[in-house]
Structure formats: structure tokens, C-alpha cells
Nucleic acid binder design. Structure first.
Lengths: 230, 230
DNA sequence: CACAAGTTTTGGTCAGATCAAAGGATTTCC
DNA sequence: GGAAATCCTTTGATCTGACCAAAACTTGTG
């Protein structure tokens, strides 16, 4: 039992993945599509909504939907609303943060074992940006994020940068609520330095341990904020 | 700029998370909802579709939507269609498989370091099921999956079992296409034994290495199948 | 050539109607 | 009495046609 909507979805999906509808191009108007597929606007509209939820088109209210090349970022973006549901509860936040810790410990190990020369250069550059921004809390957040980003790029697997985006976007609300101070920035800077040193020394165990200390401490800060906020 | 649909979505979300609409209960009929929210069926329908995409309700064609408690499985399920888009390309499959390898290497290490007595018992039980099913290929697939599942449960973080579901469901089509033979089953069984031994010996490095060999070999089998299929 | 005003297109929403499947309620039959 | 077949109401899926306000496009003007 197929719904008419499914037919339209399949048709549009085909036209997108065949490249007939190119990335960045606007979708035909709803009325044009109803002529093309011989369906009413209801089903066209429903199909477009479905494509939007699959990350194939980007919909803004009152604007023509825009075709997007499916990518890992799109997947994470689509996942956003569902994840936010889970972040309503403290346990949800903790689960997600601990997942992040798990991933980044492994990333630190991976970096120590396999980082190339250019990776290490990128890491050092990010570290210097940290140092330069240590007095400027908002800017430090940006460079902090960039430092971790480098680690997600080292495996050269496009899934990881997308996961990085996901973690940071989902957890940001809980992060900015935190009391960010220059003192904490210094702690984090020192932690980054330790991680960098361990990676430079090609010592996976030390890198993992340093990352673990860093993120467990960060989690402690976040949890404190929770406790205060009640 | 708010759309009427957003209002209905918010209203239903509230009624769900407040428990007024309990898990497993059926949503009111579309006609009832349009009376309640003073909106036309179009917006009600669009709102329900949106909730479905957020994993808050489960929709089957021609059936009344059913309320679901938001959970990590729901998130992964919602992500499914988008991920499947990416799996259309061989690079997509490889990225996802390598992500799995990355995660399970870390899980093996984690297990060796922190598995409790009951975890190890579960692992041994799963391993024995592997042994018993080694001649029965379809059954071996089931027990194979169960063995890996145990590893995802060891960190006691609800995100991981959901990720396990995701990996297996997404990759299953590429797995079943593979030439599964008793010979391959034996290879995998031996690999599982090696992983188990390393975890039992509390040797993270050996556990990670064993897992790595296991999954790289598996990836080799999958890739061969690709090459044959063209 | 840029910018403002006017016109057409188009997404968001509504109202009302049809149809076939789902879900009960009812009756039939062992 | 309980399982199975049958009837009837509800309800999801789809269609038609319409209206409005915001976008997108066109045109006139400085």
C-alpha cells in the first residue's frame, strides 16, 4: 500500500540524485510540481516536507525550497530536533557529554598514533590561537572549539567533522550557561597544551589520559552550573 | 515569523512531554485536533508529519499515529532516511564502516579496561552462541550481531546501544549482499575469541588490535563483494 | 546603473468533499 | 460461549478551489 506522497518523494529524490536538480537550485513551484506529478498540492507539500526532513532540500518559511547535496552535516542537522528532545533532561545531557568524551579520547589516541606532520602543525596553530585568546572569553570559546575540531579532522573521515558539529551545536546551550571565566580558560589552555605535547610525543596513552582529564574537568564545570541552576 | 503549523507542533509536543498523551497512546483524530487548535486539517497534518520526523510519534499509513517516548532509538530511526542517502555511494559506505571500526576499537579497549564481571559473563555467553551457530549462516549473523551488542552495552551509556542499532541497520543491506559462508563464519568466530581473550586478560592494546583485525577483515569481505557487483 | 514602485508568482492556510481502509459493533455459526 | 464472518461508523489520504500576504520579478524613474 503506497501513498501518493511516496511516489512524489521518490520522483524528486531521483531528480536530485541524478543531478537534474542541482545543488543550490530552487525546487520548481508547488503548482508546477502538481502538474508534473499529477497530484494535488497536499501531496506535493507533504513530499517536500519529507525531503526537508531527509536533508535533501532546505526549507525556509515563505521561500522556495532549495536543493542541497546530501552530506553528513545535513544528516546531523536533521537529527537536531530529535536530539534536543533528549537534552531536556539532565541524564540526556550527561549521556551525550560522556559520548563526546568517549569519542575524543579515542581521537586523541588516534592522533598520537597517526597524525601527519600537517595535522600537528594545525594543532599547534590552534593551540597558539588558544593562547592568544585566553583573556577574551567569547573568543576563547571559538578557538577552543577549533582546537578540538582539528582532532576530528585527523582521521580524514567526513563523518567525524559532522559529528563534531553535532556535539558542539547540541551542547552549546549548556556550555554558554556555564560561568566562563579567564581562570577556567587557563585551565583549559593548560589541558590543551598537555594533549598537544602527548600527541607530539607520539604517546597514545598519555594523549588519551590528558584528553580524559580535560573533558572530565569540563564536565565537572558544566555539572556545577546545573547544580546552581537547580 | 511563525507559521500556524509551528503552534500546533508546540502544543502537541507539550502534551506529549507533559505525559498528557502517554507513550503508546494513539493521537486524537485529525478532525478532533483541528477543533482543538482551531486550525485546518492541512496544518494539523503538517504538524503530525513534523512530529513523526522528530520521532515523537510513530506513523503508519492509514493508521492512527502513536505517541512514542522520545528515546535514542527514535533519534537513530529518524536519522535513517538521511543516512541511506549517503549509503548510495561506495565512499559513503566506507566512511560509515570506518566509523564503526573506530567506535568498536575504542569499545574493545574500554571493555578490557572496565568490563564488570557480568559484562564478561555476557560476552562469554554471546561467544558460545557464536560457536553453536557457526554452521548455520543466518543464525550466525544474529549471534554475531549480539556479540558486538554486548560491547556497546558495557559503557552503560544509552547512546551506545542506539548507535549499535544504527550501524547494523544501515549497514545490513551491504552485509547481506555479501557471500556469507561457513568458512567466513569460522574466521569471525576466531576473531571474536581473540577479542574475548584479550578483554578477559584485561589487555586494552590487545583487545583493540584484535577488534581492528576483525573489522578490517570484515571490511575486506564487504569490499570484495562490491568489486564483484561492480 | 541603481533604486523605487507596481505586478505576478507562489507559499501558507482554510473550507468542504470523496473514498477506501481501519476499528468496532453485531450477528452468524460451530 | 467463543471464534469467525458481516455491517457500519470513524478516520486517514487525497482532491478541488479559493484567499491572502510575502517573495520574486518587471518596469519606470532619476
Amino acid at each position: 500500500m503506497r501513498r501518493a506522497t511516496d511516489h512524489v518523494i521518490a520522483g524528486l529524490e531521483a531528480r536530485i540524485s541524478s543531478g537534474e536538480l542541482a545543488h543550490g537550485e530552487r525546487l520548481p513551484s508547488e503548482r508546477a510540481l502538481m502538474a508534473e506529478f499529477g497530484a494535488s498540492r497536499s501531496v506535493i507539500r507533504e513530499a517536500i516536507a519529507a525531503l526537508s526532513n531527509r536533508g535533501l532540500v532546505l526549507c525556509r518559511p515563505r521561500h522556495r525550497p532549495v536543493v542541497r547535496r546530501p552530506g553528513y552535516e545535513a544528516v546531523l542537522e536533521v537529527t537536531g530536533p530529535a536530539v534536543r528532545q533528549l537534552l531536556g533532561t539532565p541524564e540526556g545531557v550527561e549521556s551525550l557529554f560522556r559520548t563526546r568524551i568517549f569519542v575524543e579520547r579515542a581521537l586523541a589516541r588516534e592522533a598520537a598514533a597517526n597524525a601527519r606532520r600537517e595535522d600537528i602543525a594545525a594543532l599547534r596553530q590552534a593551540l597558539e590561537a588558544n593562547r592568544a585568546a585566553v583573556e577574551d572569553t567569547p573568543q576563547f570559546y571559538v578557538t577552543d572549539r577549533a582546537f578540538h575540531r582539528v582532532l576530528y579532522e585527523i582521521p580524514r573521515n567526513p563523518v567525524f567533522p559532522a559529528v563534531h558539529e553535532g556535539f558542539f551545536n547540541w551542547l552549546r546551550p549548556h556550555w554558554v550557561k556555564m560561568n566562563q571565566t579567564v581562570a577556567i580558560n587557563r585551565v583549559n589552555l593548560a589541558a590543551h597544551e598537555a594533549i598537544y605535547e602527548a600527541i607530539l610525543a607520539r604517546d597514545p596513552d598519555a594523549a588519551e589520559a590528558a584528553m580524559n582529564r580535560h573533558l572530565e574537568a569540563a564536565w565537572g564545570f558544566v555539572r556545577e552550573t546545573f547544580a546552581e541552576a537547580g
